[in-house]
């Protein structure tokens, strides 16, 4: 999908593109080929969107999986011990 070509052909491509759309415009005045072509473009766009949506979905699944892996690890005893000590202190039982 590279539009930049060496040798300044970008201008040529652009003018060719402008010419095409102008011709397309004229054609669409004559018949409906332009609208059917537009439908093709729309379909291609939808396919692209669907593809992007699938990718985002896949990334989302992986992201949750990565996070949940840690969530599902057993909690080290240290956590509960620290909390227990603090709780004992709060209730006045601690030394």
């Amino acid at each position: 999908m590279k539009w930049e070509e060496p040798g300044g052909r970008g201008d040529v491509i652009q003018s060719a593109f402008l010419h095409c759309s102008w011709v397309g415009g004229v054609l669409s005045m004559i018949n409906y080929s332009d609208s059917s072509r537009r439908k093709d473009v729309e379909n291609a766009g939808e396919a692209g969107l669907e593809e992007a949506r699938l990718r985002q979905q896949a990334i989302g699944v992986k992201l949750r999986h990565m996070f949940d892996e840690v969530v599902n690890e057993p909690v080290p005893d240290e956590f509960l011990e620290i909390l227990k000590r603090a709780d004992a202190k709060a209730s006045g039982g601690g030394a």
Binding site: L54, R55, Q57, A58, I59, V61, K62, H65
Partner: peptide, 8 residues
């Protein structure tokens, strides 16, 4: 990633 997501 796409394959892995399917598996998961």
């Amino acid at each position: 990633i796409l394959g892995e997501a399917d598996r998961l």
